[in-house]
Simulated assay, not measured.
Amino acid sequence: MIELTKTGIDGLDSILNGGIVKNSTTLVSGNPGAGKTIFGLQFIYNGVDQFDEKGIFLSFEENQEDLREAAESIGLDRWAEYVDSDQIRIYDKRELLSDNEFSTSLDLILDDCKDSEFERVVLDSLAMFELFFDDEKERRTYLLKFTDILKENGLTTLMTNEQGAVFPKSDIGLENYLTDGNIYLLQTPTESGVNRYVWVAKMRKQKIDTDIFPIEIEQGGIKVHKNASAFSMMNEDEYPL
């Protein structure tokens, strides 16, 4: 029987037919401002707050203070408490970039993930992660190493990624093949602002609802509405992310 890790995000777990497959890696893609970091913050916070599952948050873009402020601004009020008690462990950009050899820092993080009590990991974001490797072969080697070690140690992982279109015109990246699930956060401009949507495009070993659902980012974080959207995925030029 397949074990599931619940996200705790309002309305999302029903789309996922119960949650994300445990010990899997899911890619959460979208353009800047789509809600990817908020998604990751909720996934880690809800793990502790609702399911007694500790989490690690790797941020290549924010420092600890920024993450705390972002979490508290959407109502994740016990974030600092969970960090102080080491139920949430953060590696922020200052720690990740403190060593001249980035690969050394990454090796230390991977060692920390081995045989630990942590069950969830968020890497925010792959776009920044990849900038630290000049050589494509080295980048692929460490990405493979990262995902393999997390899976071997029973960690359920989210990785965020910048993507400007649902159907990118460039080659599909290696990360799309490495991940067990693909979730897209979409935005479309309107006269009054922006409409937001979520599309679960792939989840291995799991029956999912592949409709596109409206979402809101409000107090408490992301909320997924049950009514499927009329938003069409058929024309990527008309509907960019």
Rank of each mutant, 00 (worst) to 15 (best):
A230S: 15
S73P: 01
Y177G: 07
L106W: 08
N100L: 15
A165I: 04
S192T: 14
S24Y: 06
F133D: 02
D180P: 07
K151I: 01
D112R: 11
E101S: 10
R204W: 02
Q64R: 12
L186Y: 08
M159R: 02
K207S: 10
R78D: 12
V166Q: 06
I2H: 02
S116I: 03
E138T: 14
D211L: 09
S73W: 05
T7G: 03
K169A: 10
Y142R: 09
T156Y: 04
L144G: 12
I217W: 10
D237P: 01
F129I: 08
R140K: 13
G164I: 08
M128E: 12
N176V: 03
N235E: 08
D92Y: 05
E119C: 05
N182V: 14
D92W: 10
T210L: 02
E117I: 03
K114C: 06
I212R: 01
N23V: 06
D107K: 10
G35V: 06
L16H: 06
F129D: 03
D171S: 13
D124W: 00
D92V: 07
N17H: 09
T141N: 14
A201Y: 08
Q87N: 15
L185Q: 01
S24Q: 01
D211A: 15
L58M: 09
G55P: 02
E72S: 03
V194P: 04
S192R: 11
M1A: 13
G173R: 15
D107A: 11
V28T: 00
A201M: 14
F231Y: 13
L174R: 02
D99I: 08
D134M: 12
D135Y: 06
D99K: 13
S85Q: 11
I217D: 11
I183T: 04
K223H: 11
I90Q: 01
I44W: 07
T25D: 01
M159Q: 03
Q50Y: 10
F102V: 05
F39P: 00
S73V: 03
N153E: 04
N31W: 00
L67P: 10
K223D: 08
L131M: 14
L131E: 06
N176Y: 15
G55L: 11
K223A: 08
F132C: 05
R94S: 12
R94D: 12
Q187R: 15
Y197A: 09
D99Q: 13
